[in-house]
Amino acid sequence: MALRRVHRAMTQDITKLIVRVSMKDRAAFDALYRATSAKLFGVCLRIVNNRGESEEALQEIFIKIWTKADRFAVSDLSPMSWLIAIARNHAIDVIRARKPAATDIVAALDVADPAPGPEALTVAGGERERIYGCLGELETDRAAAVRGAYIEGDSYTELAERFDVPLNTMRTWLRRSLMKLKECLER
């Protein structure tokens, strides 16, 4: 029936579109933009937190998508995760460039790895929603720090201020939380 075809066409496969974009198919690029720009704009707005800069960021993101679409094939990510990763990374780069945070590289040198992790940690596909359960196993404020960092793009410096702890403490906290998360995610 015609209506079912309409629906099917609207929920078209983002993967196919990205693959076609990698072959420089402009119609596919337009379709990909139509299907995903609202979500990616949402990413920009949340992280960049400024409309004008978010619009500029979205431009750059789609230019990256056009030029880097061939990389999708070699990534392990689902198409939407791949697109969101591009958007998040760009948006975070924008805010890091905006407020030149104190160079915490020196501080980074001082902090020891919280736990000796096995070197070749394999990355399993697994159930993707497990992150929620695993965040639940962390202490509430540490889970909040991880979630806040991911969603808002908070830096170590900002997190340290928010949780009112020294920068190095924040690093240790977060790294420990990440190790715990990993352990849980791979369980």
Binding site: V43, S81, I84, G125, R130, R147
Partner: peptide, 8 residues
Amino acid sequence: DSYFAPLG
């Protein structure tokens, strides 16, 4: 990225 993706 895939682990955290659901938070998106």
